Amino acid sequence: MENVSGNVPYACLFLAVFLGLIGTVHGLYCKRDCHPPKCSCPQYNYPMNREDIPQMVYFGFDDAVNVMVSALYDRIFTENRTNPNGCPAKMTLFVSHKYTDYRRVKNFHENGHEIGVHSVTHSVIGNENLLRQEAKKQKDILMSRAGIPEKDIVGWRSPFLKPASVNQPKILKELGYEYDITYTYTRTHMSSPKPWPFTLDSGWPFRCATRPCARTRVKGFWTVPVEGLMDFKDLYPCTYVDGCVIGASNEKEAYKYLMDNFMSYYNTTRSPFGLNMHAAWFYRSFNLDAMLRFLDDIGKMDNVYIVTVKQMLDWMKYPTPLANISSLKSWNCHYKEPTEVPTTTTTTEKVINVTKLDERRNNPMWFILRRLF
């Protein structure tokens, strides 16, 4: 039998050297030379006094932008819904092509909201060639039809949160994207650890919930984990806000669902609180009422900011204490006059849609349109 005892000192030496090159952050490995703005380690706790960290809240809405969802977004993101610095709260829209009204996309962008890409066909993207086609073409469409500068289109989300390949981040970076918000991180309780966004310099370190995961390392490319919320009973995770097995049945339960999840971030590590969702959640009017009350309540807190995904990552690149938040340029107010949709077109569009819905009152959006129009 081979005597391995003599190899132990060499093994220990190798381990010591290896650990000297690699830092450990709460069990997650990261190179010691990884520092913002070009690199950020995967971590559960951010190395800053909690009281100095703004509690960031971001919305990531998926799918087409049309008259119905636009009315909902306008109802939520009013001029009076502002952050503690006086600037309007903003959202991110991950836009797919079919049924999208690009005039409305243009208006949202000009009002300071972020526009990301959610594919052209909104179908499962099962290989790298298809990913390249979908990610490039939809970006081109947003540029040509909505007039959005290429430099402003930096975020991608795969349909159904299904990655195309282990090389998805590498391909997206080659296409000019700066972050991917596709990969899921499942919590099992409100108290479960909540990871911060990070760059893939060391790859994806968590359990792979939806394969294939990003096992390749992509220097300087950001990933924003889609962190599931817990249902209002704290029993089962909900990947999307509107994806709970046990959903709320009234406004009180829906409000509890939102606020309990928010407080599980706010009272612990203050990692960014993501509301990844579809506007379909508002098909039930009590969910819309709960969301508006939730936003009104957190809007009274002087350390909570509702920002876009890109603004949130800007903070990650340039971590700024609350006391100095005015120095973070992308969080300052940028007021722009929105491009007006012609009055005749808008009026006709409303009449046509409401008239059609009036003829089939069972449409789940009927009650929303009645309230909004």
Rank of each mutant, 00 (worst) to 15 (best):
M1F: 01
M1I: 10
M1S: 10
N3C: 08
N7L: 15
C12I: 11
F14E: 05
V17C: 03
C30Y: 03
R32K: 14
C34V: 03
C39T: 03
S40I: 05
P42Q: 03
P42I: 02
P42G: 04
Y44H: 05
N45M: 11
P47F: 07
M48V: 09
R50M: 15
Q55V: 02
M56N: 03
F59L: 07
F59K: 01
F61Q: 09
A64D: 14
V65H: 04
N66M: 07
V67N: 13
V69N: 14
L72R: 05
R75T: 15
N83F: 04
P84G: 04
M91W: 01
M91L: 15
T92L: 09
F94E: 05
V95A: 07
V95Y: 00
Y99E: 15
D101K: 03
N111Q: 14
G112E: 03
H118D: 10
S123Y: 00
V124K: 09
L130C: 01
L131G: 04
A135I: 06
K136L: 15
K137V: 13
D140F: 07
M143S: 05
K151V: 10
K151S: 13
P159K: 14
L172C: 08
Y179V: 04
I181L: 05
I181C: 09
Y185K: 09
T186H: 08
T188I: 02
H189P: 02
M190Y: 14
S191E: 07
P193Y: 09
T199E: 09
G203N: 01
G203W: 01
F206P: 09
T210P: 01
T210M: 00
R215Q: 02
R217A: 03
V218Y: 10
P225L: 06
P225C: 05
M230V: 05
F232E: 07
G247T: 13
D260G: 01
R284W: 10
N287C: 13
L288V: 05
L288M: 12
R293M: 00
L295A: 02
I298T: 00
G299V: 09
G299H: 08
K300I: 04
Y305W: 11
V307L: 14
K310G: 14
L313N: 06
S327Y: 11
W331T: 13
N332C: 06
E337Q: 15
P338I: 12
V341M: 15
P342Q: 12
P342G: 13
T343W: 15
T347I: 11
E349H: 10
D358E: 11
E359C: 13
R360I: 08
W366L: 11
I368R: 12
R370Y: 09
R371N: 10
L372V: 13
L372S: 12
F373W: 10
